[in-house]
């Protein structure tokens, strides 16, 4: 474990706590893409198949359980909680995310560390996570004004994988045999997708103005 990865995991956890706070405190999920949340739940379920077979550390196991439980709880809430589901922007959340599923799965069949069930699904989860934010970013552009908690949520979500890039650089310097091309290239793509969001987030922070994404 290194400071970059730890900060990355904490940033990821903070993003999830912000989303839970928004949904719990405002009983609303306006501005949140259910499709992105469903994709994240799938990312965790397919990535943490080794939850009961490979024990890495208490920290690793606990975080995996937290990520799986929170992502499923958010999807459940957005689908079934009477107040929350009413605030879901169904007519704006129209990104065809099934294409993202298919593309990630096909790529995982081609590019993986080993052609084994768990490894192909692990690669699938890596590719899927890289593009899972797209429905959310499209929804933000369509919904115009972004409320603070939603803006913070997306910001921390983007920042976590950026910190992981520093983690991979650090691990490479420590051990040149350490190569995680799949995770690293995918992480770069994932972070790049946030580029314009980060730009408008920085502008709104600098001008102390409301976060506005151009339509």
């Amino acid at each position: 474990m290194n400071i970059f990865r730890f900060l990355g995991d904490m940033t990821h956890l903070i993003s999830i706590l912000i989303l839970l706070l928004k949904i719990y405190a405002t009983k609303s999920c306006s501005g949140i893409s259910l499709k992105t949340q469903e994709l994240y739940a799938l990312v965790f379920l397919t990535r943490y198949l080794d939850l009961f077979t490979d024990f890495i550390s208490v920290y690793n196991t606990v975080m995996k359980l937290v990520f799986i439980a929170s992502s499923l709880a958010i999807v459940w809430c957005m689908r079934n909680h009477p107040l929350v589901r009413r605030s879901y922007d169904k007519q704006l959340d129209t990104f065809r995310h099934y294409f993202l599923l298919l593309a990630s799965f096909l790529l995982a069949l081609l590019l993986h560390e080993k052609f084994a069930f768990q490894e192909v699904l692990w690669a699938f989860s890596i590719y899927l996570e890289a593009v899972a934010i797209l429905p959310q970013l499209v929804l933000l552009q369509r919904s115009g004004n972004v409320d603070n908690l939603t803006g913070q949520y997306v910001f921390f979500l983007g920042a976590y994988r950026a910190l992981y890039i520093f983690n991979w650089i650090y691990r490479y310097f420590i051990d040149p045999h350490f190569t995680r091309w799949i995770a690293c290239v995918s992480g770069l793509v994932q972070t790049a997708l946030y580029a314009d969001f980060f730009y408008y987030y920085f502008i709104s922070w600098k001008n102390n103005a409301k976060l506005q994404l151009p339509a």
Binding site: R5, D9, H12, R47, D50, D54, I56, N60, M63, K64, F67, E113, W122, Y164, N167, R180, A183
Partner: peptide
């Protein structure tokens, strides 16, 4: 075996 790379990252 040790070549079995375990994914130790979240």
């Amino acid at each position: 075996g040790e070549d079995e790379e375990v994914h130790d990252e979240l």
